[in-house]
């Protein structure tokens, strides 16, 4: 069985083609780069709409399959930016209707976990999912991915991106911050906000911005300090959730999984608690179409189809609202 997946929750337009044998035949990305500032939902949606045809074509060409060989069309139904989601959903509906194939709506956060499991072989991990839009610690428990901890305001990636923009570094901010941080020496005292297993990054962003404009620190020290503080917070909630759930594996995914410092923290914590660490490779960790295709495929095999009249997008669809019949 072959699935085509459409990912368009934010700035990445991704089309993936995946088989039930876990082969990623194609995973094409076309990223919207804003001329200035952060992601503008309507402009990103226009980009996705403009590039949709090409990207689908490139994915099919790369996969070397014809449209007739596609068995299901999966799409990210939420959570994400409304206009971007709607562009992907419209295209997926059109493809499914035109080709007469089943349509499968997929939760974007669940897809990150599922493709992470597929790619790394992790069976029952506690997952730290960190990106520009999400910061979630989750684990499977009785039919659903339960959320043990999450950000109470902005995502960790959003905090890093906004700071990077303020400094004049490249977007997304993570890689540049990591490079500069390598030359940092001084740890600036910043708010460290952990509430049980939840976190908050808005205060950290405000404080680092104030420190930046104070002119008292080098950019390297600022990068070093925001990175050390932000990731230590992630480490703490992850460790707490791992101790609490006793899960045998720890999975790191999302765009921020590319950060080596964070991956190191995750490995340390896993080792400390006798869990096996799994770091999802960046092509499948960042937003991509293959994760949607794969998750749509396993959901379809478990009997899930999304009828047209239930295919409206849900920009605020929590992962713990989704029933996961393909596990247990």
């Amino acid at each position: 069985m072959i699935a085509l997946g459409v990912e368009s929750t934010a700035d990445n337009l991704g089309i993936g083609v995946v088989t039930s044998g876990k082969e990623v035949l194609a995973n094409i990305l076309d990223v919207h780069v804003p001329e200035e500032g952060g992601i503008h939902p309507r402009e990103a949606a226009r980009h996705h709409s403009d590039e949709m045809g090409n990207t689908v074509r490139r994915a099919l060409d790369t996969a070397e399959v014809s449209v007739d060989e596609i068995d299901i069309i999966a799409f990210a139904q939420g959570p994400g930016l409304g206009p971007c989601l709607r562009t992907g959903a419209t295209s997926a509906r059109a493809l499914a209707a035109y080709l007469g194939k089943p349509l499968v709506g997929v939760n974007h956060c669940v897809a990150h976990v599922e493709v992470g499991r597929m790619a790394t072989g992790a069976e029952d991990p506690l997952t730290l999912y960190v990106s520009g839009g999400n910061t979630i610690v989750s684990g499977y428990e009785s039919g659903r991915y339960r959320i043990f901890g999450e950000t109470l305001d902005i995502a960790v990636g959003n905090c890093l991106d906004s700071f990077a923009r303020e400094v004049g570094l490249e977007y997304p901010g993570g890689p540049d911050i990591e490079r500069k941080a390598a030359a940092g020496e001084k740890l600036i005292t910043l708010p460290y906000t952990v509430k049980g297993m939840d976190l908050s990054y808005s205060g950290l962003l405000t404080a680092i911005t104030v420190e930046l404009h104070s002119g008292r620190h080098t950019v390297e020290d600022l990068c070093y300090s925001i990175q050390e503080t932000a990731y230590a917070m992630l480490g703490e909630v992850t460790e707490r959730a791992l101790a609490h759930t006793g899960k045998p594996e720890l999975l790191l995914t999302g765009g921020v999984a590319a950060n080596k410092r964070l991956a190191g923290i995750v490995r340390d914590i896993a080792e400390e608690h006798g869990a096996e660490p799994h770091i999802v490779p960046i092509r499948l960790a960042a937003d991509n179409g293959a994760m949607i295709a794969w998750t749509g495929l396993i959901a379809y095999q478990a009997g899930h189809v999304t009828p047209l009249d239930a295919s409206h997008v849900n920009p605020s669809w929590r992962m713990d609202q989704v029933e996961i019949p393909w596990r247990d």
Binding site: L187, Y192, E228, T229, A232, G235, G264, I265, D268, I269
Partner: peptide, 13 residues
């Protein structure tokens, strides 16, 4: 001490 945390941040916490 948590090895994954910066030593200063770690001892402060």
């Amino acid at each position: 001490p948590k090895g994954y945390r910066h030593p200063e941040l770690d001892s402060r916490l």
